[in-house]
Write a protein that binds this DNA or RNA. Structure first.
Lengths: 201, 201
DNA sequence: TCAGACATGTAAGTCGTTACATGATTCA
DNA sequence: TGAATCATGTAACGACTTACATGTCTGA
């Protein structure tokens, strides 16, 4: 039993911050969690129904002008408790499947140009991601130092933060998860350089 | 079409080194690729059948003393070409789902002790893995420097390497994939320290 | 008026894990 | 003789992706 249900608890956790619609959840994950998480509608909507069935969330109609229904999901104490319990469970060690490493490993009997290109392409792609992360990092660093959240960032934080204090805390974790992404990418880049500098003799 | 079929090409690649049985494949993946790859029997045996159906591999009986059948899979030119084609395809960017980051992110409104424990536990667990990796690294480093492959390592390499030259190359990629694992774990540990050193003010 | 964002959902299919079932061989 | 390892498979389930279907609202 239990096993996965990653989506279930990810959604529950987001709802514990603020009531949201399925669409909100998707938007939030894509904009703020994309460097370490993702969800798609095919999971989100059925999972929301599941949460309602299990009485871990409640569905409320939002007033809508037209005929199109809009819903918002709230999380009652029961759901909050379930979320807390999940948080305290030990994290399962993720099953790794690194395609680059696999290709690198399997191509060792090929000409060394092949491996060099493989690593070179990967390096370039990772470096591009790093530039993006660094840009976000700078914005967040500044916001944390000055305790002011300009434009886009404020919009993002207002999706989840209820109070000023939680806004500051969320900004901090947001920054720190980005730091994690940056460190891991830097490690990958350093590895690429190590490989490229010591080719097959 | 195409899409995934990770298992298919992983197996094809291993077979391109040396003919193997399903059991051999499992053993090899578990012992040498486990820091970046995994497979289970439920995937391996059906995938081997699939490869045979597609004429990318051929199944041969191994002489067995009893009634229990044993098989070995060989890879013909057609399979080798398919593998090469796959190697040259651009690598798909993996979909990340990092449970630790998720929990860390979602728990930001909890007391800071909770986050400290979360990160502390994770750090300890990652550190334990690092120690293992470092031990293997030392063995491989020595083998590479001295071009001698003692005991266990020789056994491992003999599963896949046909010639002395390929043995050396495989030892090198083996070492380098481990280096990757080590660098990534070190990045994670450094991140943990960063988080633990700058708690919520 | 038309593109793009808002908004909710379903169906089909693939991928992957887990548990089970079976039996042989080897070695202490 | 019994445990561990060798060895091959299947069935059921669960997780996840992709594509589709449908319709609204807002602003240029």
């Amino acid at each position: 039993m239990a096993a996965k249900q990653k989506t279930k608890f990810a959604i529950l956790g987001l709802l514990s911050w603020k009531p949201m619609s399925g669409y909100d959840i998707k938007k939030l994950v894509d904009s703020a969690l994309s460097h370490f998480w993702h969800e798609n509608y095919g999971q989100i909507y059925p999972t929301l129904e599941l949460l309602v069935d299990e009485k871990l969330a409640s569905k409320r109609d939002l007033p809508s002008t037209g005929k199109r229904k809009r819903f918002q999901y709230h999380i009652p104490r029961r759901g909050r408790r379930a979320f807390r319990d999940w948080l305290e469970e030990p994290i399962e060690t993720p099953v790794v499947r690194n395609q680059l490493q696999l290709k690198f490993f399997l191509s060792c009997d090929f000409d060394s140009d092949f491996q060099a290109k493989l690593i070179g392409d990967y390096r370039a792609q990772q470096d591009a991601v790093l530039q993006e992360y660094r840009a976000s990092e700078a914005v967040l660093r500044k916001a944390l130092d000055e305790q002011a959240y300009p434009g886009e960032l404020d919009e993002l934080l207002s999706m989840t933060a209820k109070t000023d204090a939680s806004r500051a805390r969320q900004c901090r974790v947001f920054y720190l998860t980005l730091r994690h992404g940056i460190r891991v990418i830097e490690a990958r880049l350093a590895w690429c350089d190590e490989v490229l500098q010591c080719p097959i003799e």
